[in-house]
Simulated assay, not measured.
Amino acid sequence: MAATAPVMEDMTGTMWRDPNWLAAFPLNDLSVLDYFALSPFYDKSCNNEELRRRGEGIERLAALPPGIEFKLQDAQPPHLFVIRKVLRKSPQSEENVAFYYILDGSIYQAPTLHATLSAKMKKCLHNVRAGFSKMQQDLDPLHKVVRAGASAKEEKARVAAALQPPKEPYSREHIMNVDNIILTVLQKDQQRQAPQALEQASVSHSSSRQ
């Protein structure tokens, strides 16, 4: 019966290190798997553990039956090591189960490609929603213009009609209607800012006289 890959526990939020071990032993290509075997990421049912019990070296992995194995994938001692967890199905066939990296003695589980892409997609979706929200806020004053003597319901219908793209090319009347709405908004904004500007000028003039 062919071996099947175990269900992986997501431990990407876990970091592990042993300062006492690091103070006593150098971290290099020969010792890194022994250090990794102390961490919660290690699977004690793996073939590496069987070799440790026998007192045999890592080069004897191929002589064991198929199963879970940990292999040093890449190393830039003493700072960075990449360890691969694989399911060996036969001498010629193996399946990657997980990757781990050791950075300056701290061990982490590397996120899967699916998790990485999902995180980036969520970030993109957040930015798109934030952009639409900002655009809605910028256009909101156009929907708050109310003509003198007109009800809010009538004004809302007028603004919606003015901003609705016509089926035919824009007529002169449609363009003037939109221009009038925008001009009204700008005028209201200027009237609201005028008292503030006058107050600031008065304060500045009083300060200069003193």
Rank of each mutant, 00 (worst) to 15 (best):
F36R: 05
E59L: 11
I58R: 09
N48G: 02
R54T: 05
A62M: 14
E59R: 09
N48A: 01
S31T: 15
F70A: 01
L33S: 03
A62H: 09
A23S: 10
S45I: 08
L30T: 11
S31W: 07
P26W: 11
L30V: 13
D29F: 11
C46R: 02
E50G: 06
L51S: 03
Y35M: 03
L22Y: 07
I58N: 08
F25N: 08
F41H: 04
G55F: 06
R17H: 15
G55D: 03
V32D: 06
L27F: 06
L64W: 02
L51Q: 02
S31H: 06
S39W: 07
A24K: 09
P66A: 03
G55C: 04
D18V: 04
E50Y: 12
K44A: 10
N20K: 09
R53M: 15
I58D: 11
L64C: 03
Y35V: 03
V32F: 03
F70V: 00
K44W: 15
S45Y: 10
G57M: 11
Q73S: 12
D43L: 13
A37F: 03
W21D: 02
E69H: 00
E69N: 01
R52Y: 12
L72W: 06
E69K: 00
K44S: 11
G67E: 00
D34T: 08
E56G: 05
R54I: 08
I68N: 00
P65K: 14
A63I: 10
R17N: 13
